[in-house]
Simulated scan of single mutants.
Amino acid sequence: MKPRHAPPLNALRAFETAARCLSFQKAAARLFVTPAAVSHQVKRLEDHLGIALFERGHRTVTLTSEGAALATSLSDIFEMLDLALDRASPAATADLRVSTMESFAAKWLAPRLPRFHARHPDIQVRIVTSDQLADLGRDGIDIALRYGPGAGYGNPADLLMEAPVFPVCAPGTLRADGLPLTSPADLAHVTLIHDQSAEGRRGVPDWAAWLAFAGVPAVRADTGPVYPSIYLAQEAALHGHGVALGVGPLVEEDLRAGRLIRPFEAQLPNAYAFWTVCPAAGRKVEATDAFRRWLEVESRASRSLDDRPT
């Protein structure tokens, strides 16, 4: 049997990342290359193996059965490789992999990370963003930050922050008749921005729940655009496209900077919250503990800012 040359490591890395993301674009962002480069490397690997690893749609990719099997094996191999490198260079900078949703990374975590790096220059934090639950062991995740009910994560979860819900909009947002917003009833004359995070999730407030709580159930809650994520809905509000329901920690920085305002003080509690999840047997205990302690300090500061009357 003629020996097969090993495929290039870059091609394997590109494929494994694209398989986890199910997106060449997201994989490119994680690898700091272009989507075309990821696509080229995946095609190079497919040509080397003589099989299709992805089924390509108009704007989507899905794994073939062969691709799924290879992705699982490669994830295990890369995790073992990363672990071996960590053990071989104990004096090197610790590499802490943190998994979280993109909105939380962009709106809460990223603005604060410089303070962690100032305290712990020897710990390099690598953010892995996804709205899907990560397999902490398979994906080599040291700590995960989750938005949910606090159960079903496969590992113990500790409450990081509550996530109250209240309306937010850009400064100067006006009613359709050009008048300012002065009461919740005025929401009948503006665009209500929705996101899918509340759909089918019991206890997660939507516009119907907030309007009933504010005493204006006559305002229609079923109009306005629907965005696929909290992040996009809040960004639409930030750009003056209407009023969205903000989730406390995710709008904190924009409120502080004046990019968003709260037109009304009424807020609803949320059955979902932000949680810290760690694997039962962590690989980098000291670095993980340092990051968790820092998260607790930052979350206490956030809670003091969100302690508003309803």
Rank of each mutant, 00 (worst) to 15 (best):
W108P: 00
D135S: 08
I141E: 05
A233Q: 04
D95C: 13
K43A: 15
A84D: 15
D131S: 11
A198S: 15
D306V: 06
R256P: 03
L187I: 03
A236C: 03
C278S: 13
G215S: 01
D47F: 10
D142G: 09
A236S: 00
A188G: 07
I127Y: 01
A69R: 09
E102V: 12
V38Y: 00
D142A: 00
V219E: 01
A27E: 04
R115E: 15
F116Y: 04
A273H: 06
T288Q: 13
V285S: 14
I230L: 09
P164E: 04
W275E: 06
A94P: 08
P156V: 01
P156R: 02
A6V: 13
S103H: 08
T276M: 15
E162C: 11
T100E: 03
H5W: 10
V128D: 14
P269N: 03
G152V: 05
H48K: 04
A212V: 11
S229H: 07
D158L: 15
V125L: 01
L268D: 00
T129C: 11
P156K: 06
P7G: 00
A6R: 09
F24N: 10
G258P: 05
L9S: 13
A281P: 05
G242W: 05
A280R: 12
A28K: 02
Q132G: 12
F116P: 03
D122V: 13
L133P: 08
R303L: 12
G215W: 03
L145P: 00
E253T: 14
A19Y: 01
C169S: 04
G200F: 03
S39N: 13
S299C: 07
G137E: 15
A188H: 07
P249N: 06
A94S: 14
L192V: 05
R201G: 07
Y153I: 02
E235R: 12
R256W: 09
A170Y: 06
V277L: 04
L181H: 00
S103K: 09
G200E: 00
P279E: 03
V125W: 01
D307L: 15
A218I: 08
R115N: 14
L70D: 02
A151G: 09
Q132L: 12
V277A: 02
V219S: 01
R13D: 10
E16W: 11
A14L: 04
A271M: 04
D142Q: 05
E252G: 13
R201Q: 14
F213T: 08
T182C: 13
A29N: 10
L174M: 09
P114E: 01
D307E: 15
A287R: 00
D82K: 12
S103T: 11
H120I: 06
P249K: 05
D142E: 06
T288I: 15
A221D: 03
A170K: 02
K107Y: 13
G242P: 05
G137N: 15
S73E: 15
T191A: 09
R202H: 10
V226D: 10
E252S: 14
S304H: 10
T100V: 05
H58W: 10
A198K: 12
A237Y: 01
S299W: 02
A271V: 06
A290H: 11
A11E: 07
S89C: 11
L232D: 11
A19V: 05
R119I: 08
G242S: 04
Y231R: 10
R56S: 09
I261R: 07
S103R: 08
A176Y: 06
S299Q: 05
D76C: 11
S99E: 14
